[in-house]
Nucleic acid binder design. Structure first.
Length: 636
DNA sequence: TAAATCCGCCTTTTT
DNA sequence: GGCGGATTTA
């Protein structure tokens, strides 16, 4: 299909600061991909193009589309990644200038929470009641997102300020970096070392940013720094799809963008006009937005289907029945997606998908292939966390969080009391825990064995293949036996051991990469571990949150759990407010190309209890002429 | 020292 | 209804 006029313009405007206001389904990704291809065709070195996205999924999708347009060989040379993984790459090479070693660890939210808790306890004394850390954590993230020091930040209480200071210095002591500081450290690096910045400016002369409405102050600054020399910065976004306010995103970044060229993409190619009308009707209720006229030349086609099932289980079954029917009608599994507000909602649908029976060429089949995106599952499993903690502690002995996790796992007779003694020593003398351990190794056999083990492992991991060394390590620590002793049920044991094997496999896939790369990648991208052993675009039903669905499209979408309290989420009201929740619904609706089904349940299990629900208030914003209310059991 | 039990918090969304 | 952490019990 030919590009339309404004799309063409966006593709061909390759110099200067370009703002592309791209409504949902207006071919934004297509424009970006074609623009990259065009740059290359005009003689730009593919290696000097940098495309930044927010989610791994969006980056992968863009890469996929780019490579099918211009071929994998050239496509691979373009840097397409998330802000975080870009900063990771930068810091991996240059962080020594900031006083870290390039073996630094990346702390995920869990690590940070534990660290925050530990520091809080230290500050308040052991007997003190822990305060609610919610608002404090928000303030910490906020400061980190602005790249502020404890002094620069704006704090509501001295506790937060003090904690922030301690947190920063602990991270430094542990040679660790948080997700937030990944970006602010890159900025710090560039600001303090102009020569380094210039190298990157020379390397990446053409910068493109997807979903620009979701940039936070740090990401904004990073983009400005990188593009400062050549001023080739193309940002693409849509204020109606700003859904990361809770992470510090500021829509004003896109609204106030100083552009040499502004291009508006307002023709929607994705959805039927019914779906688009519904989306427009919903988003019109937001006050804070630029009014725009998103239109479609597509035909009306079928109305939106809405149903309200008695229970959440009925809802799931009803959705799966419709999925089977669409499959019978010729849709592929991968053409269909189930979208929800929060990850916890995926459960029922997974169960229903696994239990579903359907016919393939007259034969009965059980279970529909599906893939859940996001969610914590795999990397949150204790056995995976253990192994990763080993790898982290081996790669970076200063990583105290990791060290503490595994020092007595599997049990090797290093008691909590003894450990407490050691950490006291490490705090009072300001020596890294690892050094304290080394010094104390003589006192206790178990400890010296552990120290020796870690040293030997560090040595062995210096030479590939890494997976073999991991196998050695697992054997050496008797992890299999530990699982057998620890876990009661046979099934669970097998499952855990399988996960361990999968971890080894994932490491084996990391050919050529270092141990650090592997650890960083698994932390940066929750999916890698599971995905690498599987293939990318398989024929599977997609399950994901509204947030991860952004930037994607499916012929058939099922928006589920549309109940007040879930969407809008009850906890959103205080923070980001109703409008962001509405935008989230808007994003969900506009993912659908042809079939859109909205569903809810009259009662839902919530934390073990069944309680009644009300339909989402947003549903009433859709004109009645656009949808049909169906019985959950009866097909329309 | 380790197993057993209890308690509280949790579930918003992503990197 | 599950998990991590703390407290109690063997």
């Amino acid at each position: 299909m030919k590009l339309n006029e404004p799309q063409e313009q966006a593709v061909h405007t390759i110099k200067g600061r370009v703002l592309v206001l791209a409504g949902a389904g207006s071919g934004k990704t297509r424009v970006i991909v074609h623009r990259i291809a065009h740059l290359i065709s005009r003689g730009v070195d593919p290696q000097s193009i940098l495309g930044l996205t927010f989610t791994n999924k969006a980056a992968a999708e863009m890469r996929h589309r780019l490579e099918s347009l211009i071929g994998a060989n050239v496509g691979k040379q373009v840097t397409l990644c998330t802000f975080h993984s870009f900063c990771m790459q930068v810091l991996r090479k240059e962080i020594e200038r900031l006083g870290y070693t390039n073996q630094f660890s990346l702390y995920d939210e869990r690590d940070m929470n534990r660290l925050i808790q530990q520091l809080t306890r230290e500050m308040l004394g052991h007997d003190g009641e822990l305060p609610s850390l919610g608002p404090t954590k928000a303030a910490l993230t906020n400061a980190a997102n602005r790249g502020q020091t404890a002094e620069e930040g704006t704090w509501h209480d001295s506790f937060s300020k003090d904690l922030y200071g301690r947190l920063t210095s602990s991270l430094r002591a542990y040679n660790a970096v948080s997700f937030d500081s990944l970006i602010s450290l890159a900025i710090q690096l560039f600001e303090e070392h102009p020569a380094v910045l210039e190298r990157f400016q020379e390397r990446y002369q053409y910068l493109m940013i997807d979903e620009y409405q979701d940039t936070n102050p740090a990401q904004f600054r990073l983009a400005e720094l990188l593009s400062k020399k050549y001023q080739n910065l193309c940002v693409v976004g849509d204020d109606d799809q700003s859904i990361y306010g809770w992470r510090g995103a500021e829509v004003k970044n896109i609204l106030n963008f100083k552009a040499d060229h502004t291009i508006k993409l307002e023709q929607n190619y994705r959805s039927t006009s019914i779906i688009l009308e519904a989306a427009n009707a919903v988003i019109r209720n937001n006050q804070n937005r630029y009014d725009k006229k998103l239109w479609s030349a597509n035909q009306k086609d079928e109305p939106i289907e809405v149903f309200n099932a008695p229970t959440d289980i009925d809802e799931a079954n009803a959705v799966i029945n419709r999925i089977i029917r669409l499959h019978d009608q010729g849709l592929k599994w991968k053409d269909m997606a189930i979208l929800y507000r929060s990850n916890a909602l995926s459960r029922q649908f997974e169960v229903a998908l696994m239990q579903a029976s359907w016919q393939k060429e007259g034969k009965w089949m059980r279970g529909i292939p599906y893939e859940v995106f996001g969610g914590l599952e795999f990397s949150e499993r204790s056995e995976i966390k253990d192994l990763l903690a080993y790898l982290r502690a081996i790669a970076n002995p200063l990583d105290q969080e990791a060290l503490l996790r595994i020092i007595n796992v599997p049990r090797r007779g290093i008691s909590d009391a003894y450990l407490d003694q050691l950490t006291q020593a490490n705090r009072s003398s300001n020596t890294p825990l690892w050094n304290v351990l080394e010094k104390a190794a003589g006192e206790k056999k178990a400890l010296s064995a552990f120290v020796d083990l870690m040293k030997e492992a560090a040595l062995r991991f210096k030479t590939p293949p890494l997976a073999d060394t991991l196998t050695w390590l697992i054997d050496k620590i008797n992890y299999k036996k530990a699982i057998e002793e620890e876990v009661k049920s046979e099934k669970m044991r097998a499952f855990k051991w399988e996960n361990v094997q999968e971890c080894v496999n994932a490491l084996a896939q990391e050919e050529g990469g270092s141990l650090q790369d592997f650890i960083a990648n698994t932390t940066l991208n929750r999916q890698t571990m599971q995905n690498k052993s599987k293939k990318g675009h398989e024929d599977k039903v997609h399950l994901m949150t509204f947030h991860s669905a952004k930037g994607l499209e499916f012929p058939a979408c099922f928006l589920v759990g549309l109940e007040d309290g879930i969407l809008p989420h009850e906890k959103s009201m205080m923070q980001t407010g109703l409008e962001e929740e509405r935008r989230l619904f808007y994003v969900g609706i506009t993912r659908a190309q042809k079939h859109l089904t909205l569903s809810m349940a009259r009662t839902r299990m919530r934390m073990g209890k069944t309680s009644p629900t009300n339909p989402s208030r947003f549903l009433f914003e859709i004109p009645k002429t656009l949808y049909k209310v169906a019985d959950h059991k009866i097909f329309a």
